[in-house]
Design a protein around this nucleic acid. Structure first.
Length: 174
DNA sequence: CCCTGATTCGC
DNA sequence: GCGAATCAGG
């Protein structure tokens, strides 16, 4: 493929939007990221304005490698009641499908990095994108550390500290 | 190993 | 001008 005026314009737009060379290459199709970078230099676009994020989004590591973070069930008073309390909450959790995280601005995932559920494995990010049941539903599918369910970006989203989320203060005690 | 952009150099 | 190969870095 050649650098038509259209493709150059799209390249300029995506580059100044802060997409990486490989993402742009995927978007354009028919070119490699090397080609994109080469073109960017020839156009004199290199050295993006400071809006560029540091390569990969830095994230804190998932705490315990084996055990995913989980809301702690606090037991006040007679700890002998603990098991019952947990059991009740689990039952409730099954019938109340809620994602309480605040809406997140999704990354742009190039189409060829996206994964269907059948393509997920221990090395792929399992972050769902879109609505299940719609045909535009897919999973992030980027590389994740072995055994870690999400890529770096979605780890940082999934394990976002509670202090960063919108707080819904429970009014009454209980 | 995954990724990033930068540079070189034969075509 | 183009882009694969390579380099340097996170």
């Amino acid at each position: 493929m050649s650098w038509t005026e259209e493709r150059v314009e799209l390249l300029k737009k995506l580059w100044t939007d802060g997409l990486s060379a490989s993402q742009i290459a995927a978007e354009l199709g028919g070119v490699t990221r090397n080609a994109v970078i080469g073109k960017v230099h020839r156009l004199g676009l290199s050295g993006r304005t400071k809006t560029t994020r540091p390569a990969a989004p830095r994230v804190r590591k998932a705490r315990s490698p084996s055990m995913p973070p989980r809301p702690v069930t606090r037991v006040i008073g007679n700890t002998a009641l603990k098991l019952n309390v947990v059991a009740e909450q689990q039952v409730e959790a099954e019938i109340v499908p809620v994602r309480t995280l605040a809406p997140v601005t999704e990354l742009f995932i190039p189409p060829e990095q996206r994964a269907t559920i059948l393509e997920l494995n221990e090395h792929t990010c399992k972050w769902p994108i879109g609505d299940p049941g719609h045909d535009d539903f897919y999973f992030c599918g980027r590389r994740s550390e072995s055994g870690v369910p999400y890529c770096e970006h979605h780890c940082s989203v999934a394990y976002q500290p509670a202090s960063d989320r919108k707080r819904s203060k429970a009014s009454g005690a209980n």
